[in-house]
Amino acid sequence: MGITQLEIEHVARLARLALSDAENELFSSQMSAILCYVETLNELDTDGIIPTAHAVPVQNAFRSDAVQPSIGTDQALSNAPDRVETFFRVPPVIE
């Protein structure tokens, strides 16, 4: 199955990736080849098969709702590209 450049642009938008024209073109041909390959899964009848999300049966792991030490504001902000006081600063969201 092929994937069009228009679809690539839509997916890139969903993935929040500003791709160049060259990348758009490259990914559209490479992803088409990969999607064509994964089509082989359709040879298998999977009706009634329960999907596996996790290989090992795991249950919700709860802990007691108790206050524990955390890394604190300064550490949490220490890798921020831009900060002001105790906030992450970002470009304007609303005009």
């Binding site: 899964l41 298998l44 999977t46 098969i49 596996t52 999300a53």
Partner: peptide
């Protein structure tokens, strides 16, 4: 979803 089912197999 298809892949997750194949994972079961």
């Amino acid at each position: 979803l298809k892949a997750q089912k194949v994972r079961t197999l």
